[in-house]
Design a protein around this nucleic acid. Structure first.
Lengths: 94, 94
DNA sequence: TTGATATGCAAGCAGTTACTTGCCTATAGT
DNA sequence: ACTATAGGCAAGTAACTGCTTGCATATCAA
């Protein structure tokens, strides 16, 4: 089980979340193409697969397997634990 | 300049933010005592000083030096960049 | 079945991180 | 001036992280 904070401590993983938040439900190969073409990241498929594993372990990505493809979906719910830990006191609070 | 995500990827640093959000403006030695007594963390002063340096470099802590003491204040503003990057789509959005 | 596609597992390597140890600077009190 | 207090700098080390390479598994199409 990976911590949400650690999962977010990597620009590649953050970009993956960016991409999934734009187009959800992509496969590993689609994500590889996205990162290579649109972000100039020349990583191997395995490297990206490991990143997806970290994101999934942190609950930020949920997957669904159909046939030989695995679809990845962005789950923003764990992000609430971050700002929820240090609730920024509103100035309207007397 | 340290990334906010990296600064948060450490439980000790997160606890420091917890402590400062409860009692702001503590010195290095006060923070050391807090971590040791209330959290059972037996770290050296230098280790905690380095953590404070990371937090300050990320903008999460601002400091003010008076005499031989340095006071540390929690600045939650950089946290807005985290949830701001992946705005959780509200369900009221059609 | 044969071959191509989509993904998984695991070992190894280089760079980074957290922590310690040792020494140094600066301020305050006597 | 001397001592204690509060903090800073830097090198070294053990553990971890991101990435690659190589091989294996599973699904689909012919």
């Amino acid at each position: 089980m990976v911590d949400v904070f650690r999962a977010l401590d990597d620009e590649t993983r953050r970009i993956v979340l960016d991409e999934l938040s734009v187009r959800d439900g992509q496969t590993l190969f689609e994500i590889c193409s996205m990162l290579a073409i649109r972000h100039g990241l020349s990583l191997t498929r395995q490297a990206i697969s490991q990143h997806l594993g970290v994101l999934e372990s942190a609950g930020l990505v949920v997957t669904e397997r159909r046939g030989r493809s695995k679809f990845h979906y962005f789950n923003p719910e764990p992000l609430s634990g971050i700002t929820g830990r240090w609730p920024s006191r509103k100035r309207t609070e007397k």
